[in-house]
């Protein structure tokens, strides 16, 4: 800024309160921005970036290295076996029929009254 203009500005700032306040706030903003601008990044940032890129490459390679039978056939086989297991389960469930009891009690037995039977205690007291 030329000397003459600088003196004029300084004189005005000395007289005008609003302009002085505005100038102070702008100086403050500049000071804060300069302080942030001067901040240095982490000295290990380059190492971190390189490690990140390396990890990315490794992930990409390992993804490419998976053979087709592993990426397609394996999930397909798992799905088929799950479907087969469900199908067999349903099939076996349908085969089952409630079996009729072979040792069916004779009809007379239903007329027997268990309560009227002779108590065992009767013999133990002898």
């Amino acid at each position: 800024m030329p000397e003459g203009i600088r003196i004029q500005v300084e004189t005005h700032l000395g007289e005008c309160k609003a302009c002085a306040e505005s100038f102070q706030l702008v100086s403050l903003a500049n000071k804060v921005m300069d302080a942030e601008k001067e901040m240095k990044s982490n000295p290990f940032l380059v190492t971190r970036i390189m490690a990140g890129i390396e990890e990315l490459e490794q992930n990409r390679e390992s993804y490419q290295r998976i053979p087709a039978y592993q990426s397609i056939l394996k999930p397909a086989l798992i799905s088929v076996s799950i479907a087969a297991a469900i199908f067999i389960g349903v099939l076996v469930g349908n085969i089952y029929l409630p079996t009729q009891s072979i040792n069916k009690l004779p009809v007379e037995m239903t007329y027997m009254n268990d309560a009227a039977l002779e108590s065992v205690d009767l013999f133990s007291q002898l």
Binding site: M33, E36, K37, M39, S41, N42, L45, R48, I49, G52, I53, L56
Partner: peptide
């Protein structure tokens, strides 16, 4: 990143993300 985030650690992380 610092100009937008105003925080050193965040700016570091974002710088890393930008390069990746």
């Amino acid at each position: 990143c610092m100009g937008f985030l105003h925080h050193k650690d965040d700016a570091d992380d974002l710088t890393q993300d930008v390069f990746i």
